[in-house]
């Protein structure tokens, strides 16, 4: 019995620790990153998430269904909002890198980071994934990745009850990997959130919230592009 208990406990521990990957700490962008003029820097984006609503905190199935129904017209509208300003981020990042004397290599299509093998590197700020296949394919020195996880409108809940007004949101991260040792030379967590000015509940077009969404998009673009311009 003792052995069996130990096995169950160990399994539970493995599952729990597996779920609890610590978030990557930010890594400041140092000017030394762009010292090597003419370096080939890949510019990639992961698949842009669908512009949509999300209701964190509405955890149970019934809570999620209730939140979805209560915000259905907002969701319908949110799904019509364009993400063009995020789509052109790759080109804008490439232009900023070229101004720094880098040779930007825009990687067409979506980069699927999850498909890459896990990194075994032990250097400080080691990237969690092994980007050596990208290095070999495009002959790169560095890789800049924009990885957005949520784009649209967010409204927090506690079970069935909203705990905030909806807000425009763009979350994710942007980072530069030095492909010589697979380490982060820059890691920027993104969490742009903007509230509507004045009333938000203006169905069917939700102009105040739509504006908040566009401002969150612009704030996220600034967060990525301004450090590259300095």
């Amino acid at each position: 019995m003792k052995f069996r208990f130990g096995f169950v406990a160990a399994t539970a521990l493995a599952v729990l620790t597996g779920c609890a990957t610590p978030p990557q700490n930010p890594v400041a962008l140092s000017s030394s990153v762009f010292v090597e003029q003419g370096a080939r820097v890949g510019v990639a984006m992961t698949k842009l998430p669908k512009v949509d609503t999300s209701f964190p905190g509405a955890g149970c199935l019934l809570c999620a269904a209730a939140a979805s129904v209560a915000n259905s017209s907002l969701t319908t509208h949110t799904q019509t909002l364009p993400a063009d300003d995020l789509v052109r981020l790759k080109a804008d990042v490439a232009a900023a890198l070229a101004k720094k004397g880098m040779v930007p290599v825009v990687i067409d299509g979506d980069l699927n980071v999850d498909d890459l093998p896990k990194s075994s590197s032990t250097v400080p700020n080691a990237a969690r994934k092994d980007f050596s296949s990208i290095k070999a394919k495009y002959q790169l020195d560095k890789l800049l990745v924009v990885e957005l996880s949520q784009v649209g409108i967010v409204r927090t809940y506690s079970a069935y009850i909203p705990t905030s007004d909806p807000k425009g949101t763009v979350t994710g991260s942007s980072y530069i990997v030095n492909l010589k040792d697979n380490s982060y030379e820059w890691y920027l967590p993104l969490a742009a959130q903007k509230s509507a000015q004045g009333a938000w509940d203006e169905a069917p077009k939700f102009p105040g919230l739509s504006n908040a969404y566009f401002l969150a998009v612009e704030e996220a673009r600034d967060a990525i592009l301004l450090p590259l311009a300095n």
């Binding site: 905190g57 955890g59 927090t156 809940y157 506690s158 705990t163 905030s164 007004d165 807000k167 903007k194």
Partner: peptide, 15 residues
């Protein structure tokens, strides 16, 4: 005024 940081966060609730 800005309400960008307004909201009381998420949280589980047992009724």
């Amino acid at each position: 005024v800005s309400f960008d940081k307004a909201g009381t966060g998420t949280g589980a609730m047992v009724y």
